[in-house]
């Protein structure tokens, strides 16, 4: 418990935590509402979205889909950066050394880090939901639409969002531990989340086996889960796997990333 508290205290007062969460909230607002709103009011709609689709995407009722669709790629990348920085920078600062000599077992120290990151990521998803819901209500009121709050189905979308966020967190933690530093972890992570999987998808359209593989890679699984719970119209969202299959792959990735990172942390010498 002390380990979680300690780690929360330091993540809470870390400017990077709030900068990254803030950047994400601005992005989700801009791409989810501001641009759509401008397009609705006289922009040139080159994506061929009908007025009805635009309106539907911004309805408070559909806020769950708005939250989840951002997470497979850009939201995920930000969460990955946060986790990789939080874990990786501890090597350069020497804080891992301080942490591992404080008293608790290494497993507990690692659990503290994971627990605190989990709290931060749940907060990020909750804030994304709150900000998106507020924006949608403001727009619906401004436009005088008939609107209603989302139904219970929103919890499915939020649950999927949390699972996707958990996978990217685990990925970031894993990279931070493996590379023992923030720079390479962030670089490799961003490269993977934004570039590599997309390139593979490009190749996949030529080669069948590669295509099947891309569906179940970390970003692919996340995109398929987002698609399965109603997300659409954002980069990284896919519609090839069932929600259950995608969710199982994500759970698998969380277990593998977190398990491998913890095992390494416990076994490896800290010099």
């Amino acid at each position: 418990m002390g380990s979680v508290k300690a780690e929360l205290l330091r993540l809470w007062k870390w400017p990077a935590t709030w900068v990254l969460i803030g950047v994400w909230l601005v992005m989700t607002l801009t791409f989810g509402y501001v641009f759509n709103y401008l397009a609705l009011n006289g922009g040139t709609n080159t994506r061929d979205m009908s007025q009805q689709q635009l309106i539907s995407a911004m309805q408070p009722e559909n806020v769950g889909a708005a939250v989840v669709r951002g997470l497979p790629m850009f939201g995920g990348a930000i969460i990955l950066v946060l986790a990789a920085l939080a874990v990786g920078s501890g090597y350069g600062w020497g804080t891992w050394k301080t942490t591992l000599t404080a008293g608790p077992r290494r497993v507990s120290a690692m659990a503290g880090t994971l627990g605190a990151l989990a709290v931060v990521v749940v907060l990020l998803v909750a804030l994304t939901f709150a900000v998106n819901l507020s924006a949608s209500i403001v727009i619906a009121s401004l436009e005088g639409w008939d609107w209603s709050l989302p139904g219970w189905g929103v919890f499915e979308a939020l649950g999927a969002s949390l699972l996707i966020a958990a996978m990217w967190t685990g990925f970031g933690v894993f990279l931070g531990v493996v590379t023992k530093g923030p720079a390479l972890a962030v670089g490799l992570g961003l490269m993977w989340a934004i570039v590599t999987e997309n390139l593979l998808r490009g190749v996949g359209s030529l080669l069948g086996p590669v295509e099947s593989l891309t569906e179940v890679l970390p970003g692919g699984s996340a995109g398929n889960l987002a698609g399965a719970v109603g997300g659409s119209g954002a980069p990284g969202v896919l519609n090839s796997l069932s929600g259950t299959t995608a969710a199982l792959f994500l759970v698998g990735y969380v277990v593998v990333f977190v398990g491998a990172a913890t095992l390494l942390k416990v076994r490896r010498d800290l010099v």
């Binding site: 330091r10 007062k13 870390w14 400017p15 600062w93 020497g94 804080t95 050394k97 301080t98």
Partner: peptide, 12 residues
């Protein structure tokens, strides 16, 4: 213990 220089969070 204090080993080879202190390890603290620079922003705290």
């Amino acid at each position: 213990s204090l080993i080879e220089g202190p390890g603290f969070y620079p922003y705290l």
